[in-house]
Each structure stands twice: as structure tokens, then as C-alpha cells.
Design a binder for these strands. Structure first.
Length: 943
RNA sequence: GGGUGAGUGCUGGAAUGGCAUACAGGUUAGUCUCAAAAACUAAUGGUCUUUACGACCGUGAGGGUUCGACUCCCUCCUCACCCACCA
């Protein structure tokens, strides 16, 4: 008789039904402007061999609940899924498995896809793609070329972070604080290699200011601001003199060991025989009267001049300086870390002259000055900067107080604890004396600028973005280097096309062309008709020891003709980082459609890339693979193609809801924002920010509160959970376990609660199964009123990304419903109201909802395409509970009909009649506070 | 050092100015069973007393605002995450 809950019996059926009926296809791309659109996107996964993690499940379920809710609410929803399939992790896994990633990754994608389908995520699978499909990266490469033409890419030898284990260069961001590679944990070393570098710093200001309008978590915004690191300050030029300078009043004997040199007059300073100048960046020029030394980074050009012998000083120990610089270069982050804040350094033998007071300040080299921030030179004010004090203290440099401390403290500073970094009043500072530090800052900046010794500047922490990877598994960079053209000093920007491009885009690159050209002699982008430049199928693709890309070993790949002069030339052999594919994938979903191009292979399969038997692929097959073009419109320029796609996408973009882990707080989100801004500038997009709302999901830890990891043996496989409890129970549990953004350990025990809930849902709806056409119903008005309340709550909670509380309220409702049914010995809800409950459950538990909808209630169209229930109005005969307080302390509860709630006098009378209230009030003066339908409070007044 | 967030039963958590501990897990007792599991029922913050429509205490600590504070403000403590020799 009883029909037990067996999700395994029907989940597969509905999976296939949804797929067959394309239930979740995003409807007709145009003509929905009257309806609010919602582009709901989860950060697409890198399909690892391990399959879906329960953390993925949490993220995708939340996103799915949101998409389903919007879909039922009559919004036009785009909810796609794709694969971030290029990149190091896949390549490393393939190396380990001794296969080509091309042979391995598709299998992983299939696994992921199967798992996602088993969990009932409502993706429009027609829009699926992987970043490794030539048809997709054809555009990735084209975009690279556009950025190149925009002058936003340059090629330079750069000391890059190099992982000896992965044999590849890394971006700064991929190196952990302890100096190890984030992927493999190996120690990073520095290596000089030619790199393609993005001028992302050109966009620093806009990347910062456009954060303003975004509905993102405060923490992520703060991290982006912090990463961009805007600082407003001043660059001050100091004249450099050597120890030989013995001006009349400029007598300092042995400066490194302190002493108190006499000041020069302004005229004397300006007449000094300076041998050079050095520029220091500072945000605190107000303290400059207290500056007593200067520190330059080991990589600073001034130091190179000394080592190179260009600058000579009797006081300089060049050997010692050279040793220090070499040591600093070889020092790993780890070693630096180990040293802590202990200051090291060497005197350069030169002095800078403090413009303000003529003080002769020794110039030191120290690794605490960083070449990549400010100017690479710091002016040391030991009295008012802890780090400067530590340095001065270590080497016996004089400390001067120029700001009064708390309580007017003007004592001399001899200990770190006394260093005064806070606000205060200026002293010992000539024309600044008596001002507060902010006034003094403005005043002294004006002074420097007037004299021409300084210039207000803005400095950013953001560095240019190293884009080359010396690896196999990435999009080949579509550039060619021609030695002949290089010798002739020609670059792309000297070609007819290049000139035309610059002309057309002069508003953006105009003024910079000469600077941009300089480093790019001999470099030409591939012609559009040669895109995509496919990644050849290589049997052996491990990076050579040289650190160069594996593609550099494939002669047939390297050898090509110069697109400019036609002579022998070489291809770029570096590949793009996996950020490339993820930088614009959200732009592709809106126009990507398998229906339009059903014959399109997921990506170049093995059949199209027969592997050679040898170490490297044979000439013939490389050639074959390179000549195989995936071009959909041979007569259309790619720009026109892009614009056509853009027209298709316009109604969808930008992304309304972007859900994913906080680990992408800086990199992926910053890079995507950067690309979108450039595309906007090129008029290839109409919006400036890709993701309007961002929400983070918290990590799912293992039951032992550690990260899930194979090596700990604490991994929960979602497939096992689905097999035992069904997808709905897993989905409900992952939404119920904690607030969406909270980190939370997995608990199989707690999962039981959600499983029981789903089972009870099944049982209660089973009561509506009947051979006869009618089921006995005795409607429970109170229950209906409760139903209205939870529908209202769920409707407002879901768009606030609150998924745990809707489930709690549904559980609560189930408890009441069961009790009511039992009391009634009949159904307490009409079929209509039962369906209402089923609908609000549907986004969370789509399988059981569909099964009941179609099998019990005999509906013909999917519940997921039905409309979200209206929140019913509260009927007059409903009752409200009003708590009664005396002096703010709860004493009793009144239950009154809804219509009476308006009547304060009556409520008060009723409350005062209650024994529990009476005893505190009787015979005492009181006043009454009544908040309608909420609470009544009696305040006993003292006489 | 900087930034962001958080501190509520045995556990995950709910309540964002109005009945603190909803909902779920766990535990205890009971029903059913030869037994176990499942399921169901009940209890479950602390202290006290005259043991009930009972009192008092109770949301990291202390203070404030308010008729009323987990919620708002101030001071402090603790934890987590991110960044960090950033001039």
C-alpha cells in the first residue's frame, strides 16, 4: 500500500525528460526586453580527474536554486555551464598519467557533465563549450591580437618566478607567501625569460574607481582595492654628491656612523656640484625635515652604475655592494621570510642632500626597498616610521623627531616603541613648525613642486601582468617573430594595416605608439584567416630543461613565414595562462548555441590529430593540424563576427549574478574586468563591468574540519551520496547546512535530517495519490495561513542568497502539516495549496517536485516551467499572537483575531485582564507602548 | 602592521530593534521488535523555590542609547580568512 521514497527509481527518468524536452533551454534570445532578464552564472570549473567535489555541488546548487526561482518567477533566465579546461593542473595530471591532455580532458568533462546532470542542475546544455575548443580559442587568440594592436602587450625579458619542478614561469599571484608554487608546493626561483606582458597598470585607476557601483561582498572589493594599491604621494628629487664634496659649511666626517652635519643654505644646495639625482617616492613628505638617510633597492639603476664603475666614490666598497646585490637576487621569498624584519644593507659611498635643510644623507642599498614599488628608492625618516627606525638603529644613523607625540611629547626617540607614526604637530621643521601633519603635507608638497624638486604622483601596487607560459597545455600565442624585419626596425605598427588600426583607434593608443613600437620590432600577429592557430597534438610535451615552451622543440610549429615580408620567421612558442579562457567565457555563453552548429566537434579530437609514433609528431601531421581551420564564416572579418555575436548577446549581458569561491577574489575577477574594459574601449562591448552581483560560497570542509584531500582520505564523493540518498537530499542538505557564504564541515549525520525531510515530503504527497478522482480534504485554515507566510519568506529569502532559512521554514511547515493531517484524518490542504508548497520546494528538490507534480497530480508540463506562487493575502479571520511585556520583560501572549490588532484600547484591555500581567501592574501608574500586531509593553512609572 | 568577517545550547545554526535558542543534528527516555535498524512520541540553556500560567540569570567582556538590545553606538578581548619590509 505504502509507496516508499526511492529516488533512484525516478531521478534518472526526469533527467532524461528534461534533456529530451529541453526544459531549461533559454528561450528565444530576442524579444524579451519587457521581461526582466537574469544571467545567473556559477564560476565554471576546471574539470579535474577527481570529478565533482561536494564544494562544487554547494556552489552549483545555490546558483541553480536562484536560476530556477527566477525562471518560475517569470524572468528570462540564462544559466549556462562550460569548462575551463586549459592550464597547469590538467597538464600536470596528464604528465603524471603519461597521456596527452587532449586524450584525458574530454573524459573528465564527460564525468563532470554526467555528475551535474545527476544532480539536476538546470543548465542550458546547448550553450556548453570548453576553453580548449579551437572554435572558442580562435576568439581568445583574436582578442590577444586586438590587445596587441591596442598597444597593451609588450615583450620584455623579465625576471620571472620560475618553478623548477613544473619548469614554467609563473605570475606573481601563483607564488605563495612562503615562496612556493601554489599548485605543486615547490620552491620558486627567479629566471630571466622573454615574456609577453599586459599593460594592466594602464587601467589601474579605472579598475579601482569602477568598483564603486558593484554589488559585491565588501571583503572582495577591499581585496581588489588593496591589490591595486593606490597611494597618493610625491616624488622628490635629491641631488647626489660623493664623500669628496667638502663645501664650506657642508662638513660631515663619517656619516654612516651618525654625527650631526651642518645644514646648507638653499643657495648653497642649489650650487652644489651634483653628480646625479635620485628620486624617492613618499606619502609623508611632511616629515622630511627628519629624513636622515636614503635606501635604494638592490635592482635600482643607481646601484648598477656603481657596480658598473660608472659612478665612483672613495667611500664605496664596490665588492661588498656587488656581493650584497647578488645575494639579494638569489634570495628566495622563503629566506626573506625567515629573516623577518631584520634589516640588512650596505653603504653606497654616496650622499643625497636634503633639499629642505641641506642635510647630507647617506645612501644605502637594502632589500627592504622594493624596486617594484614607488621609485625603488626610499627616503628614511627613522623618527616616524618603524621600518626606517629599525634600519637606522641597526647602522647607527641619526634619528630626529619632527612630530610631537601624544601629550606633547618632544623627547628624543631612542627605542622602536617611541617611533611616532600617528598624527601630531610639526616641530624642528622650519616653516612647517606648528602645523598638523596634514596641513604640513600639503604645504611641503607645494614647496617641492614650486622649487621643481618634486612632483605629486599616484603610485599603484598593481604590476603589469605576465601573460606567457612556457607550457604545452594552453592557447598558442598567435604571434610571429621575423628577424629580417626586426633588423630593419620594423614592427606591426609600421605596416599599412597597423597604421590604419592606430588611426582608427587613435583615441586609445594614439600618443603611445612610439613607446609601444620600441620593444616590438619584428613581431607580427597572425592574419585572421590563420586563426585558430591550433595546438598541435604532441606525443611528448614535457617542458625542456631550458625553461622554454615545449612547442619550441617542434620545428614544424616554429617555422613559418613572416606575415609582413614573407621571409623565414619563427612562431611564438609560449602559450597563454588559463586565465585567458576564463577572461571572456561569460561573454560567449549568450551567443554560443549548439543548435546552430550541431556538427561542431567539442574540440579537435584525436582523429583530427593522429599522434605520430615518434618522440615528436611528424612534420606531416603537424602541418595537417595547422591547416585544419575552424572558421564558420569565411567571408566575414572576425570583428564583424564578434559584433554579430555581440548583437546576439546584448540582451543577456552583463552577468547579473556570479557565484563562486572567494579564492578568485583578485586574479580571475580583476583580469576579466580588465579585458571587459579594453573591449569597451574598442567598442566591442557596451558595458564596463562584467559581473554586477558577486556572491561567494563558503568552503565545504571534511568531517574532521580539515580540507578534503585524497591524502587525508576524508573526501566525500557526491556520487556516493546521490546513490544512497538521492540528489534531492544532497541538494537540500547542502543548502541547509549553513548560510551560503559560511565555511562549514561536512556531516553525514546532519545529512540524515535533510534526507528524512525529503522522505516525509514524499509520504505526505503520497496521500494525494488516489485511485478515485477525489481525495478527502478538510482544509485547515491556520495551516493555509502558515503556508502563505512561508511562501512569502521563501520568496524574499532566495534573491538574498539565503538558502538555509527557506528550508528551515519548509521543515517547520511539514511538521505542522503532518500534525494537522493526523488530527484531521484527512488532507488538511487542498490540492491547489499542496501544489503551492510543492512549487516553493521545487528549486531545492527538483526531482521529487517533478515526480509528484506529474505522477501524483497528473500535470502535463514540467513544474519547473510553472509559475511561482503568489503570496496570498491574510484573511480577516486569521489570528495574531501579540506578546505582552511589563517593563520590557515578557509576561504573556495574547491571541487576537487579525482585525482586532488595529484597536489599541481593546488590546490594552485584554492584556490588562491577564493574571500574569495584572500582578505586575495593578494599582501602579503605567504608560503603554503598542506596536501594531507586534508587541505591547507596559512601563510602570515611578511616582 | 593593514583589510574583511565572525563570536548565541553538546554541534550546525535561527532571530538585524519587539516571545532569544526556530529548524536540523546529537543525547536521554519511551512506543514498535525475539533483537537491531528504520519510524514514531516526549524531554533537552543555567540557577533557585513554595514544582507552575513560578522567579531570577543568560547571545565573548564592560559601558551607553531605548518603553524594549543578540541586533544600534563606544571601549576592550578572542577567533577565522585575505594582504603585508607598499615608503
Amino acid at each position: 500500500m505504502k509507496n516508499p521514497y526511492q529516488p533512484q527509481k525516478f531521478e534518472k527518468k526526469w533527467q532524461e525528460y528534461w534533456e529530451r524536452n529541453k526544459t531549461y533551454r533559454s528561450k528565444n534570445i530576442s524579444g524579451f526586453k519587457n521581461k526582466e532578464k537574469q544571467y545567473v552564472l556559477a564560476m565554471f570549473p576546471y574539470p579535474s580527474g577527481a570529478g565533482l567535489h561536494v564544494g562544487h555541488v554547494r556552489n552549483y546548487t545555490g546558483t541553480d536554486v536562484l536560476a530556477r526561482f527566477f525562471r518560475m518567477s517569470g524572468r528570462v533566465v540564462l544559466h549556462p555551464m562550460g569548462w575551463d579546461a586549459f592550464g597547469l593542473p590538467a597538464e600536470n595530471a596528464a604528465v603524471k598519467a603519461k597521456v596527452n591532455p587532449m586524450d584525458m580532458v574530454p573524459g573528465h568533462i564527460e564525468t563532470f557533465k554526467k555528475q551535474m546532470k545527476s544532480l539536476g542542475f538546470s543548465y542550458d546544455w546547448d550553450r556548453e563549450f570548453a576553453t580548449i575548443e579551437p572554435k572558442y580559442y580562435r576568439f581568445t587568440q583574436w582578442l590577444f591580437i586586438q590587445f596587441f594592436k591596442m598597444g597593451l602587450l609588450y615583450k620584455r625579458n623579465a625576471p620571472i618566478n620560475y618553478c623548477p619542478k613544473c619548469k614554467t614561469g609563473l605570475a606573481e599571484e601563483e607564488v605563495l607567501a612562503d615562496g612556493t608554487h601554489e599548485r605543486c608546493g615547490h620552491k620558486i626561483v627567479k629566471k630571466d625569460l622573454p615574456q609577453w606582458i599586459f599593460r594592466i597598470t594602464e587601467y589601474a585607476e579605472r579598475l579601482l574607481s569602477d568598483l564603486e557601483g558593484l554589488d559585491w561582498p565588501e571583503g572582495i572589493l577591499a581585496m581588489q582595492r588593496n591589490w591595486i594599491g593606490k597611494k597618493e604621494g610625491i616624488n622628490i628629487d635629491y641631488k647626489i654628491v660623493d664623500g669628496e664634496v667638502r663645501h664650506r659649511d657642508f662638513l660631515s666626517t663619517s656619516p654612516p656612523k651618525g654625527g650631526s652635519p651642518k645644514s646648507l643654505t638653499k643657495n648653497q644646495v642649489s650650487s652644489l656640484p651634483a653628480i646625479d639625482t635620485i628620486t624617492c617616492f613618499t606619502t609623508r613628505p611632511d616629515t622630511n625635515f627628519g629624513a636622515t638617510f636614503i635606501v635604494v633597492a638592490p635592482e635600482h639603476p643607481f646601484v648598477k652604475k656603481i657596480i658598473g664603475g660608472e659612478l665612483k666614490s672613495k667611500e664605496a666598497d664596490v665588492k661588498k655592494i656587488r656581493e650584497y646585490v647578488e645575494k639579494a637576487a638569489s634570495k628566495s621569498e622563503m629566506e626573506r621570510q625567515a629573516e623577518g624584519r631584520k634589516k640588512t644593507g650596505v653603504f653606497t659611498g654616496f650622499y643625497a642632500v636634503n633639499n629642505l635643510n641641506g642635510r647630507k644623507m647617506p645612501i644605502w642599498v637594502s632589500d627592504f626597498a622594493l624596486m617594484n614599488f614607488g621609485t625603488g628608492a626610499v627616503v628614511g625618516v627613522p623618527g616616524h616610521d618603524i621600518r626606517d627606525f629599525e634600519f637606522a638603529h641597526e647602522f647607527g644613523i641619526e634619528v630626529i623627531r619632527v612630530v610631537k607625540g601624544k601629550d606633547g611629547d618632544v623627547s628624543s626617540i631612542t627605542k622602536v616603541e617611541q617611533v611616532q607614526e600617528e598624527e601630531g604637530t610639526m616641530i624642528n621643521s622650519g616653516f612647517l613648525d606648528g602645523m598638523d601633519i596634514h596641513k604640513a603635507t600639503v604645504k611641503v608638497m607645494d614647496w617641492f613642486e614650486e622649487k621643481g624638486d618634486g612632483k605629486r604622483v599616484v603610485s599603484y601596487h598593481l604590476r603589469d601582468w605576465i601573460f606567457s607560459r612556457q607550457r604545452y597545455w594552453g592557447e598558442p600565442i598567435p604571434m610571429v617573430y621575423c628577424e629580417k624585419c626586426a633588423k630593419e626596425g620594423k614592427s606591426y605598427f609600421d605596416t599599412e594595416e597597423g597604421k590604419r588600426f592606430v588611426n582608427e583607434n587613435s583615441n586609445i593608443i594614439g600618443g603611445r605608439v612610439d613607446e609601444v613600437k620600441e620593444g616590438l620590432k619584428g613581431w607580427f600577429p597572425l592574419s585572421e584567416k590563420d586563426l585558430p592557430l591550433e595546438l598541435p597534438y604532441l606525443k611528448s610535451y614535457e617542458p625542456p630543461e631550458s625553461g622554454e615552451s615545449p612547442l619550441s622543440q617542434v620545428e614544424d610549429f616554429v617555422k613559418t613565414k613572416c606575415p609582413n615580408c614573407g621571409s623565414e620567421a619563427k612562431r611564438e612558442t609560449d602559450t597563454m595562462p588559463n586565465w585567458a579562457g576564463s577572461c571572456w567565457y561569460f561573454l560567449a555563453f549568450p551567443f554560443w548555441n549548439k543548435d546552430v552548429d550541431s556538427a561542431r566537434p567539442i574540440f579537435a579530437t584525436r582523429e583530427s590529430h593522429p599522434a605520430s609514433q615518434g618522440h615528436l609528431e611528424s612534420e606531416k601531421t603537424v602541418h595537417a593540424s595547422l591547416s585544419k581551420r575552424v572558421s564558420s564564416s569565411p567571408n566575414m572579418s572576425m570583428k564583424d563576427e564578434w559584433l554579430a555575436n555581440k548583437n546576439l548577446s546584448e540582451d543577456w549581458t552583463p552577468v547579473d549574478w556570479y557565484l563562486g569561491g572567494a579564492e578568485h577574489a583578485v586574479l580571475h575577477l580583476l583580469y576579466s574586468r580588465f579585458w571587459v574594459k579594453v573591449l569597451y574601449d574598442m567598442r566591442l562591448l557596451d558595458f564596463k563591468e562584467p559581473f554586477l552581483r558577486l556572491r561567494n560560497q563558503g568552503m565545504v570542509l571534511a568531517e574532521d574540519h580539515r580540507k578534503m584531500s585524497k591524502s587525508f582520505g576524508n573526501v566525500i564523493n557526491p556520487d556516493d551520496v546521490v546513490k544512497e540518498y538521492g540528489a534531492d537530499a544532497l541538494r537540500v542538505y547542502e543548502m541547509f547546512m549553513a548560510p551560503f557564504n559560511a565555511e562549514i564541515p561536512w556531516s553525514t549525520k546532519a545529512l540524515q535530517g535533510s534526507f528524512r525531510f525529503v522522505k516525509r515530503v514524499w509520504e505526505i504527497f503520497d496521500g494525494y495519490r488516489s485511485k478515485e478522482s477525489t481525495v478527502e480534504v478538510k482544509e485547515d485554515k491556520k495551516l493555509v495561513s502558515k503556508l502563505n507566510k512561508i511562501v512569502k519568506k521563501i520568496t524574499s529569502d532566495i534573491p538574498q542568497i539565503k538558502f538555509n532559512t527557506p528550508i528551515a521554514s519548509m521543515m517547520e511547515f511539514m511538521n505542522d502539516w503532518e500534525v494537522s493531517n493526523r488530527k484531521n484524518s484527512a488532507q488538511s490542504l487542498t490540492v491547489e495549496n499542496a501544489k503551492k508548497f510543492l512549487k516553493v520546494l521545487a528549486p531545492f528538490a527538483p526531482f521529487i517536485a517533478e515526480e509528484v507534480w506529474q505522477e501524483v497530480f497528473k500535470e502535463k508540463e514540467s513544474i519547473h516551467l510553472s509559475s511561482w506562487p503568489e503570496v496570498g493575502s491574510i484573511s480577516a479571520d486569521e489570528e495574531v499572537a501579540i506578546p505582552v511585556q511589563v517593563n520590557g520583560k515578557y509576561r504573556a501572549t495574547l491571541t487576537v483575531p487579525f482585525e482586532k490588532a488595529d484597536n489599541k484600547d481593546e488590546i490594552e484591555k485584554l492584556a490588562l485582564a491577564d493574571e500574569r500581567v495584572k500582578r505586575y501592574i495593578e494599582g501602579k501608574k503605567h504608560k503603554t507602548v503598542y506596536v501594531k500586531s507586534k508587541i505591547i509593553n507596559f512601563v510602570v512609572l515611578k511616582d
